[in-house]
Nucleic acid binder design. Sequence first.
RNA 1: GGGCCGUUAGCUCAGCUGGUAGAGCAGCUGACUCUUAAUCAGCGGGUCGGAGGUUCGAAUCCUCCACGGCUCACCA
Length: 492
Amino acid sequence: MQELNEQTEQRLKKLQELREIDLDPYKQTFNPEHRARDLIDSFSNHSKEELERQDIQVSVAGRIIALRDFGKASFAHIQDSTGKIQIYIKRDILAEDFSIVKKIDIGDQIGVKGRLFRTKTNELTIEVKNLVILTKCLYPLPEKWHGLKDIELRYRQRYLDLIVNPEVKEIFAKRSAIIKAIRDFLEAKDFIEVETPMMHLIPGGATARPFKTHHNALDIDLFLRIAPELYLKRLLVGGYEKVFEINKNFRNEGISTKHNPEFTMMEFYVAYKDYNFLMEFTEELITSVAMKVIGSLKIPYDDVVLDFTPPWNRIPMLEALIEAGVPESILNDSEMASTWAKQKGIDIPKDASLGKIIDEIFKEIVEPNLIQPTFIIDYPVELSPLAKKKPDNPQLVERFELFIAGREIANAFSELNDPIDQRQRFQKQVEAKMRGDEEAHEMDEDFVRALEYGMPPAAGEGIGIDRLVMLFTNSKSIRDVILFPLLKPERA
RNA sequence: GGGCCGUUAGCUCAGCUGGUAGAGCAGCUGACUCUUAAUCAGCGGGUCGGAGGUUCGAAUCCUCCACGGCUCACCA
């Protein structure tokens, strides 16, 4: 319990008084037969007179969010998961002792039964015959017309945010709809949904720093996964041809409006296909989600309108750089590239490979300008140790990233299935790690062994679900699409 | 981690160049049987984020700390 203030004391006193008359407000059950939104929708065409004639009995349960007391009658609005509806409690009609109405506070949850009618102002209202207090609320709710604005409180006490800010509920309803649409789409195409480990002996499948934990009985260190990729590909070896997983990844890195340490990723793999297939597939997937969830391919985000109408632009990474004004002559030489980047004020880590330098330049000068959906294709091989090389240019791999609103939304490639090449790429990563690159991949012998048994040619992709939800809900911060974003503890 | 900004009643916010802390909602008491930001009369409610410092005197100025926001760096 927080420090007792005057308001909580009042509420505790009412709670005690209710218990004294044998109405403990935490014990009853209640079976509402109706929900607020349904009632308002179903009876929108019923006039005042029709309602008087028909005597429609309903029951709803919900939280009191507004209360107007008139002495021998009261109006209130109660809110359930669907919306709110007005109730009218009149002493002459209420079956219970009217004095319990004085024990009700804003925030309490009640169940009511009674007759539908329309007030003078034509608002659909329940005339309460029976009333039961289901749960006492011991704190005052945030203020009725400004709501809860304090961002820190909204994240720390998301339950309060959800109670008083209806638009927040809509965001998470949309999040649920987006994930369902993705699942439906993939299942309709015969994908099988799987779950692979969250705890990895070797963190792999992405370049990122992991969280470390420990298994006591086995006395081994484990890492929370940074990606499911290497396990999903083992399933291709095992004979599945279409698999996907929607689940959390954990990366031990900074927190920002675009990053939460745990975030939701959808990864899927298709046998016998390459990254060209995946680009069309991605267009189909995301437009299908947009149509189902938003009902349009033109979606406002921040101060632009995102147009998802396919086909989306496909630009090779090097071309995108040249278009953005990077001299072609520096793109083959890490010395020159590094010098050019530094002149432009771009930080280049020492010992960076040419690919890494090019990537840094790309992130700085191209990425923020990729507003409309755009596939950037053909990445330097050093950046992509799990992707298949292009047959006509072994410096590049068959990989694309999808950018929307200046952010990476998806990452995909033709999967490297040559075990000898894979082993060499891991070895290069291990060397980079020895030189101090904390994010370089580790050798995963079992994964290489799986490839040695033979993985069919395949294409795979990861889509950042939180970021996709941000786009479809016009949210500027990832914290607005994650119910409980990570925050520091309240008190030291 | 760096920079900038913020933290005052349960909530939303005022509080000027330093002079004993304010409003609205919410709460309490009373009136009121169609209100919806109900209305009317009255009343209570504060460790001004925390700790130091300057000063006769600090919500206000200074230092440190905590938490948050934006941003840069790292990343998806």
